[in-house]
Amino acid sequence: MTMLQFNGVHTYYGPIHVLKGVNYRVEEGEIVCLLGANGAGKTTTMKTILGLVRPTEGTVVFKGQEIGKMTPSQVVKAGIAPVPEGRRVFSRMSVSENLELGAYVRSDHKAIADDMSRVFDLFPRLKERRKQLAGLMSGGEQQMLAIGRAMMARPTLLIMDEPSMGLSPIFVERVFDTVQSINKQGVTIFMVEQNANMALTIANRGYVLQNGEVVLENDAASLLQSELVRKTYLGEAIEVS
């Protein structure tokens, strides 16, 4: 089943044309990775899914339902949970308060308590620190909290905007491990990443975005081998002829 589909989506910030007719497709159970340079439109893609940016043309379809005109709260209720860029944890709230807010759209208290235990199983670190203010934790712990918080909404699709940004190499690896284990629990993942090597290692498929257009689309293994990705994102030496 197709989880998420972009059909010729165009978006604008005022006069600036950002996404220029992009098409993405995310199948159920996949990890799909979106690569691109700064300003290519990766974050705009995430904002478009959430309903923070409206497509002027084209449709965004989630499980057969058009979500392009929905508000963020409707999108989250439909089953999409975001892990926003820069983590954006509620820094002056405790870890458990952050997780409770993640379950804001739900009202099944018993299941929420179970899910909180599940998040603590996934991140024992958070359990230790559940009474601590989120803002006093390290970047990696905050990223775990942001992921845990998104999981509290019991999403079917998790959208992640640069989960490895600003993290130490050990935490980057941990975050990608977590992404994989969440995926194994049946959650589909669509993520934006700068760390192409790591992202493509765990992803099923990937898209490369340049100036608002998809220039390359393939399964992850082939993308890792492709010349464009190797030269642009993996820092391989460009031969001067």
Partner: peptide, 25 residues
């Protein structure tokens, strides 16, 4: 209340609050 929690979240960070599914309007 739930609304009270939504207010605190909104006061802290509007974008993050929207990501939690809080209807800001």
């Amino acid at each position: 209340s739930r609304l009270g929690r939504a207010w605190v979240a909104m006061r802290e960070d509007e974008l993050a609050a929207a990501c939690m599914g809080i209807n800001l309007r």
